[in-house]
Amino acid sequence: MLMIYTVYVLYAPAYDKHYTGFTANIELRLKSHNEFGKDWTARHRPWKLIYTRDFDNKVQAMDFEKWLKTGAGRDFIKTLPY
Results as ranks from 00 to 15, higher is better:
28 L>Y: 06
52 T>W: 05
75 D>G: 00
47 W>F: 02
62 M>W: 00
4 I>T: 15
19 Y>C: 05
18 H>E: 04
44 H>Q: 09
23 T>V: 01
55 F>C: 09
67 W>D: 11
80 L>R: 01
7 V>E: 07
15 Y>N: 12
7 V>Y: 05
12 A>D: 03
71 G>F: 13
59 V>E: 14
44 H>D: 01
68 L>N: 00
43 R>F: 00
32 S>Y: 15
46 P>G: 05
5 Y>Q: 02
20 T>G: 05
50 I>A: 02
79 T>D: 14
29 R>V: 00
12 A>I: 03
41 T>V: 12
53 R>A: 07
38 K>I: 11
3 M>A: 02
79 T>V: 05
64 F>W: 12
29 R>D: 03
61 A>I: 07
43 R>Q: 11
73 G>L: 07
44 H>T: 03
2 L>C: 02
27 E>F: 14
80 L>I: 15
25 N>W: 01
55 F>H: 10
44 H>V: 07
53 R>G: 01
44 H>M: 10
39 D>S: 15
54 D>H: 11
49 L>G: 04
15 Y>L: 08
34 N>G: 09
20 T>F: 05
60 Q>A: 13
52 T>A: 03
69 K>L: 15
49 L>T: 06
72 A>G: 01
73 G>C: 06
5 Y>T: 08
13 P>F: 00
64 F>K: 09
68 L>A: 04
82 Y>C: 08
39 D>L: 12
2 L>D: 11
46 P>S: 11
42 A>I: 01
49 L>E: 06
37 G>C: 07
36 F>E: 13
56 D>G: 03
79 T>C: 07
34 N>Q: 10
65 E>H: 10
25 N>V: 07
68 L>K: 04
35 E>V: 13
71 G>L: 11
63 D>N: 14
20 T>L: 10
40 W>M: 10
77 I>S: 01
62 M>V: 00
72 A>E: 14
79 T>Y: 09
27 E>K: 14
52 T>M: 09
27 E>Y: 13
38 K>F: 06
72 A>Q: 09
16 D>H: 15
41 T>G: 00
21 G>Q: 01
56 D>Y: 12
47 W>M: 04
40 W>Y: 14
11 Y>Q: 03
71 G>W: 09
19 Y>S: 13
21 G>D: 07
69 K>R: 15
5 Y>P: 02
32 S>D: 13
37 G>Q: 10
14 A>F: 05
47 W>H: 04
61 A>E: 04
39 D>E: 13
1 M>V: 08
13 P>M: 02
19 Y>M: 05
45 R>D: 07
26 I>C: 08
78 K>V: 01
19 Y>V: 02
3 M>Y: 00
81 P>Q: 07
71 G>K: 14
82 Y>D: 09
55 F>T: 05
81 P>H: 04
70 T>Q: 11
1 M>W: 03
20 T>P: 08
